[in-house]
Design a binder for these strands. Structure first.
Lengths: 222, 222, 222, 222
DNA sequence: TATGAATGAGTATTCATTCAT
DNA sequence: GATGAATGAATACTCATTCAT
């Protein structure tokens, strides 16, 4: 939240029709170029040309290319967040048994990430060198993490693990890391796309279920 | 294996003392610059200056900057591989119970990656845009994966999961993804370093143990 | 004609005053540097410095140094062509006897080439390695060749050679080669400037006259 | 003659077997590379690699790359000169009528140039920027010119032109320029290779014959 | 004498950013 | 506000020449 404010302060969002339209075109074009290339190496001249806006207009809205990238990221994360949060809420509403809930929510999270993987990848890579991108990404991650935690804890009774809160967090973190890696979000990308997506989701659900069901765990924890 | 040969063909490795020393200095300098910055955006003039070699000397050894980066990666992966494989072998030799073995090997893998995380990170990021880097990284990953699989399957009797081979693969993949993410290997880096390293290792060991012990899994597999 | 279009497509010609002026300065500077050196080995930094434009401005107009060279060539050839074609038309209008016409047109062609020899030389040399330069040069050559042929064939009655069309072509080719060589257009340049220009023109006129007047020729033709 | 001496002073020609062989290999390799590329843009590293000599050896023999190019040129011109002079002598010995002699000597000169066109072209182009190359070329040209003049003047009686010496010079110059241009020796190369070689030779012979036979010429001379 | 590794000035080209219109 | 031409620092790469061994 706070981060978005920091970023938005550097961006001049127009209210009027014509300006608004060209502002949207800038952001959409930059997003498209990044998604196509899988990285942030687009030039502002490309945005100007493809988006039919002038370089000057871009600098009229943003103080720098970095600010533009951040604005695009915010745009993308808005979509990711609503898709993700709505999806999680949808699963929650189905009021399934824990054994049915786990694969369902794993699937929901996996599909939400997959749907936006092309748009998110450039930011994942950039995050290592750009603290603002990292912070914005972390914000989105946290929103999802919270929603997932709440959904899991509705099934607190079914979780045999001695420390349910911590176990749910660990499970989500593992889930997110595994999905992100498969989707090629930069990490150890060499293995991206390897294996079968459906099997991956099944295995991850199995793991989470086994982990949260296991009563013996936690003994070894520090 | 084959990939390393392909790459090494593009590099002229000197045998004699003086040349060898300056060749090493080039690679060490490039590695250092990349590790410091966390990315591959160093310039050859920097390498020349810091490493006290001339631009010409660099081009005497490598056909391009890309080839130099690949040579650095090979150098790093050699160290990673020996550390990792020796570590895994060391754990195997201790002939522990499965319950002791799992945290031990998790710890070993985690520490091997952590030791080289600064050196590996730039290549993880570059892999998305450079197929050679991706292939070299995959080679290293596969060598570790094989050693880990073999070590786990020595405990085949303790694995209740209906398909031990697949389960071990899935567990390793999950483990690697989680560690890589924590170490900031590009993937969803926004969460890198979050949480406690010791706790993470414990949780991952718990998950793997619970997963491989669980007999009910696999029912959902395709 | 077509070649010029192809080349001009790669060049962004400004229309407005200020831009136009700096664009002209680039071309004029490049032309001047080439003419001074007698070859195409100028650098873009020289053009930038001497022409008081920035490197970036140059790349704003041309995609590459090659494209700039081609643009300069087109500029030079425009001047050569108009001078040449007007000169030939001027000779034609004087409606002289064939014996007066031949030295007159030889002189006209010779002087047109001589006037632009410094500007043309760099392109003559570059033509061997640059197909676009060769094609542009050929275009200009052909325009002159056609005009010359037409002018000679107005005197068809005076040409005793059994195949007037072929003879006129051969005569023009010989004339062009001899003048180009004298002017140092690369060919066997070692002899450039040797002898007297006025005498050369007289001798060439004599040769052409003798050749076109000779009725016995062509017997040996294949 | 004098020029060759000047050049040879900068070259250290070895006398002993092994050195001599590698010296020859340098020159032959450089010549081959130039003939293949049609220009002088080879690198000394290429000569070292292809010719299996070391860079150091090259600089042991020559003070600079330029000196090496000049040595190659001398080597080529030796071959051109002997071929040309022997050919001309051969034609002379056949003691033909003037009408048979002219096409015969034109053919001889044309074929001699054609045989060595690939080897000579790089030097023709370089002559514009390298006075030594120009001077060496001029020496060779002059040796041929003298031999040709002498051969023609054996037929002095058949030459009706009022100034036979000057006419023969002019005819040779025109002949050489036309052949050089056809063979692509840099000059107005755009037209190189255009038309038919056999027809070109026939036309040139016709022109020379007509010119030397014509009694009316010279009236217009200054 | 022979070797070939090392040198480094020099080149074309890119691109975020500025600013006159 | 809007435009897009202009800027110029920065970068990968070349190659004749030197010199330690």
């Amino acid at each position: 939240m706070k981060n978005q404010d920091v970023v938005q302060a550097k961006i001049r969002v127009p209210q009027q029709g014509r300006s608004k339209a060209s502002f949207e075109r800038m952001l959409a074009t930059a997003e498209q170029l990044m998604a196509e290339r899988g990285s942030d190496d687009f030039t502002l001249n490309e945005v100007a040309k493809v988006g039919k806006v002038s370089i000057g207009s871009i600098y009229c809205r943003f103080d720098s290319k970095d600010d533009m990238v951040h604005a695009v990221q915010i745009r993308v994360l808005h979509r990711v967040d609503s898709n993700m949060l709505l999806g999680i809420a949808g699963v929650r509403e189905r009021r399934m048994s824990f054994e049915a809930f786990v694969p369902a929510i794993v699937d929901r999270i996996a599909e939400a990430l997959r749907e936006f993987s092309a748009e998110m990848r450039p930011f994942m890579l950039r995050a290592s060198n750009d603290p603002t991108v990292a912070a914005l990404g972390k914000g989105s991650y946290n929103r999802t993490a919270t929603a997932v935690r709440d959904a899991f804890l509705e099934h607190r009774a079914a979780i045999l693990h001695p420390d349910p809160d911590r176990a749910v967090d660990a499970a989500f973190r593992m889930l997110y890391a595994s999905l992100a890696r498969y989707l090629g979000f930069g990490s150890s990308i060499e293995a991206a796309g390897e294996g079968d997506w459906t099997l991956l989701k099944a295995d991850l659900a199995d793991m989470i279920l086994a982990y949260l069901h296991s009563a013996s765990a936690g003994q070894r924890a520090a």
